[in-house]
């Protein structure tokens, strides 16, 4: 009984004092844990407001382009804006997209090569990219470097076959696009990964309008759609 009263008193006083660490020193661990518990409780109390329904009219009002990223295993969905477009010594254009709450995804020719801010993410990846080709340009080796074993990394090597599943159409927020459906079937590291890409089928365009890609053991599959007009 005393123990329960004591814990309650401790918790109450610490929550009251929450943020009671000032100055350029490390915060005491007990304080950090109590604050995290407090945040957790207030989050439970105030669930996030439901997201607005996505319509083309709403998108047209936005000053910049968005991609929608959904993570299957945690039922999470977010809208990302592009923060960087660049090239390096490897083939393909790199794009970095970022949410407002500091999660980012990097793509090379539409293929996920890094996730940041998700926890247990994809550190880097070798993808079969080629200039002017949206999505994978060929089958063969693919390499994922994943966060694993605490702060370490684990390399997952996979062998992939590329299937062209032919022309299809996809509808993205009231606009129907003509696309080619490419599918990568990868095996290795005791598992199978299937990545799907729906790539713009107009000549000279390499945009991956929509995709479902594996982004590592912890993040699992992510679905990505380009919402631009």
């Amino acid at each position: 009984m005393t123990l329960i009263r004591l814990t309650a008193a401790l918790l109450a006083s610490a929550l009251l004092l929450g943020g009671c660490a000032r100055g350029p020193e490390e915060k005491p661990g007990e304080l950090e844990v109590l604050q995290a518990v407090g945040e957790q409780i207030s989050r439970r109390r105030k669930p996030a407001p439901p997201a607005a329904t996505l319509t083309r009219a709403l998108l047209d009002q936005q000053p910049q382009n968005y991609i929608e990223v959904a993570i299957e295993n945690r039922d999470a969905k977010a809208y990302l804006t592009r923060v960087l477009e660049r090239r390096d010594s490897h083939p393909g254009t790199i794009e970095v997209w970022r949410t407002q709450d500091n999660v980012s995804l990097a793509f090379r020719q539409g293929m996920v090569i890094a996730t940041r801010g998700l926890g247990g993410g994809l550190l880097s990846a070798e993808v079969p990219a080629a200039e002017g080709v949206g999505g994978p340009a060929r089958g063969g080796a693919r390499r994922y470097t994943l966060r694993a074993d605490g702060n370490g990394q684990r390399v997952v090597n996979m062998a992939c076959r590329l299937h062209d599943l032919g022309p299809e159409t996809v509808e993205i927020v009231e606009i129907t696009r003509s696309v080619r459906h490419l599918q990568e079937y990868c095996e290795g590291a005791g598992g199978v990964v299937v990545n799907d890409y729906w790539v713009d089928s107009r000549p000279g365009r390499a945009l991956v309008w929509q995709s479902r890609q594996w982004a590592g053991a912890e993040t699992g599959y992510v679905r990505i759609r380009h919402l631009q007009r």
Partner: peptide, 25 residues
């Protein structure tokens, strides 16, 4: 075959393309 795909389709629960079939760490 060509035709309207139905994305976002439900993710497969087992078999290729499912989270369960992907490599585990």
């Amino acid at each position: 075959a060509p035709g309207p795909a139905q994305p976002p389709q439900a993710a497969p629960e087992t078999g290729p393309g499912s989270a369960a079939a992907a490599p585990r760490l």
